[in-house]
Amino acid sequence: MSVLVYTENWDGKFKKATYEIVSYANEIAKQLGCDLIALSIGKVSDEELKSLENYGASKVLNANDDKYNTIISQVYTKIIADAVNATNASVVVFANTYTGRSIAPRVSVKLNAGLVSGCIALPTSTQPFVVNKKAYSGKAFADVQVNSDIKILTLNQNSYKIVENKKDAAIEAFTTEIPDNYFKVKSIEISKASDKITVNDAEILVSGGRGLKASEHFGMLDEIASILGPTATTACSRPITDLDWRPHSEHVGQTGKVVAPNLYFAIGISGAIQHLAGINSSKIIVAINTDKDAPIFEAADYGIIGDAFEVLPSLIEELTKLKNS
């Protein structure tokens, strides 16, 4: 028996979400008293693969073939399902990212394994196997019991702390047969908005709403994010993307992204129920709003009733002072 974790890479690199799921999967392996095996697909350096041993992986399977450069869910599903069978895994862990969401359900069908997506904590029990997930877009949580022999979990980003747990992992090549007709999806072009950290990866989100009144005023949020460093980025509420002031990828809320940063600044955001659903797992919420009755203050830890155009310049000044001290 083992626990298998699929460690997605981004241009050959792992990131925080990878180490979160490895730490999480390692703790499940401990609960079950078995080994943790990591599976990487695509081109990743040995050094990068080796880094997985720091978080508990005792073996790393490396499925590296030029054919795997484009992430095709059918192809990746076949590789992962074959690896599950080869390692006799009873639990399979994915990150709840675009890729994880596109593959985990298919693997679940292939292995007739129950899937719980969007997990936010370790299983509360392994027999029966019960795990907690978000439901109703963050407005509720559900305890889900999985009754199949193999269990598949996807873990929400920023939900589990990275824990070091040094092992000595061997890297083994993993090969398997893929039918030719699985390669029907052709990648034509990839366009990345920028090198900025994504809204889901960020630890600090500086988010703006209609209270900012015009797209050019979001420059102040960019400035605050840049003072706070590379783990901070900007986000916004729904009306802002509807107005095309900011890209859809920055929309936080029920129909946008559900986030869980350490710190969330809600600036000029009144806090509609759909927006609150998207942010209520944030550890600290700061609200800045002119309306003292805005619902955002009920969700916030710290609040300032005031005009963003007066508060933000002093915030920029004070944060700069802090960072320079």
């Binding site: 439901a135 407005k139 509720a140 949580f141 889900v144 009754n147 199949s148 609200a287 508060v311 002093s314």
Partner: peptide, 27 residues
Amino acid sequence: LTQVITHTLPEAKSACTMIEPDNVGEL
């Protein structure tokens, strides 16, 4: 293969600490 055993609602937040707009340094 999976069953929801129970649902819970998010815990109510403790009260928001309010800071005066001319005292951003305190925030």
